[in-house]
């Protein structure tokens, strides 16, 4: 009898914790949507930013800035990450070099984003003289995103049955032929899914942008990689903490809502890619 009561109490606690976690996480969304939705209208999304009266303008330059940043990060991180994953999963043996690469990846994944910011500032802004530009910020965030892309891509490669490789090699394919014709087509959707999620996370990062330097106000939108840029997360940060307009916090929430929606849309797209792929494949 005693055991049964204990059982009920403990299992009840676990259930409660599970539900509590979910509640916390769902309420985050509600807390962003509730104040944010009030300020969102067409002008807010498509208008140019007015720093004097924040209620007049929109956050279009910040949306474009974050979008460009995402493209920049994708260009610098996705090919490198996928190639590295191919090396680790398809070519590498358990050598000292491979163990070092794996150790480096795991540690890079744990380096705080602000440290990436310092690194990016020292290397890209100062040492390579890119200045506080889209290019410098993209490279900084790309360094941070590479380990995520590698991890996701390796996962996708591991899901490809060995038979696809062996079958091709036994027919006299070179390793690269086997990878290109048989492994990559099957692993690509998984790689894309993982990369999109990695990019979404990178686009939400703020701390590196504080250091490498996004800007809070600019006329128009950037038209070269060496231009300054606005970005949604940085915009949220400034509005929430360093702006004295009475409605600043509401506008911060509006911007945050746009940012969260953007990230969720990307995650959703990734999930759709994954779902379609799983439905089609037959191994």
């Amino acid at each position: 009898m005693n055991d049964k009561i204990k059982e009920r109490i403990y299992l009840g606690i676990f259930r409660l914790c599970g539900i509590l976690s979910l509640l916390i996480l769902v309420s985050i969304l509600i807390f962003v949507i509730e104040p944010g939705i009030k300020v969102i209208d067409l002008n807010f999304i498509l208008g140019m930013w007015q720093t004097q009266d924040i209620t007049k303008g929109g956050i279009f330059p910040a949306i474009v800035g974050t979008f460009y940043l995402g493209i920049g990060v994708a260009v610098f991180s996705v090919p490198v990450g996928i190639c590295c994953a191919i090396y680790l999963n398809e070519y590498a043996r358990n050598t000292g070099l491979v163990r070092m690469i794996r150790l480096a990846i795991r540690n890079l994944a744990g380096v705080p984003s602000i440290v990436y910011g310092l690194f990016g500032f020292a290397v890209f802004v100062q040492f390579l003289h890119f200045g506080t530009s889209l290019l410098a910020a993209s490279l900084t965030l790309a360094a941070m995103t590479i380990p995520w892309v590698i991890t996701a891509s390796e996962e996708a490669l591991k899901g490809v049955p060995d038979g696809f490789r062996e079958g091709a090699i036994a027919l006299g394919a070179t390793r690269w032929q086997a990878i290109r014709t048989n492994v990559l087509p099957s692993a690509l959707p998984g790689m894309i899914t993982g990369s999109i999620i990695g990019l979404a996370r990178a686009m939400g990062e703020t701390a590196p942008l504080i250091i490498v330097g996004a800007t809070f106000y600019m006329r128009g939108i950037p038209d070269s990689p060496f231009d300054k840029f606005m970005a949604l997360p940085y915009h949220v940060f400034i509005l929430a903490t360093q702006h004295n307009h009475p409605l600043a916090e509401q506008y911060a929430a509006g911007t945050a809502l746009v940012l969260v929606l953007l990230i969720f849309l990307m995650a959703l797209a990734a999930m759709i890619v994954r779902y379609n792929f799983r439905r089609k494949r037959r191994w």
């Binding site: 599970g18 976690s21 979910l22 996480l25 769902v26 985050i28 807390f31 962003v32 104040p35 999620i197 979404a200 996370r201 939400g204 990062e205 703020t206 701390a207 997360p233 940085y234 949220v236 940060f237 929430a240 903490t241 916090e249 911060a252 929430a253 945050a256 940012l259 969260v260 990230i263 969720f264 995650a267 999930m271």
Partner: peptide, 23 residues
């Protein structure tokens, strides 16, 4: 729950900071 938690992990920390300030 599993994808919900994955989605939550993608929420930027600046958004959480904002909720901290507001709520």
């Amino acid at each position: 729950l599993k994808p919900a938690i994955e989605m939550i992990a993608a929420i930027p920390s600046v958004v959480l900071g904002l909720i901290g300030l507001l709520i």
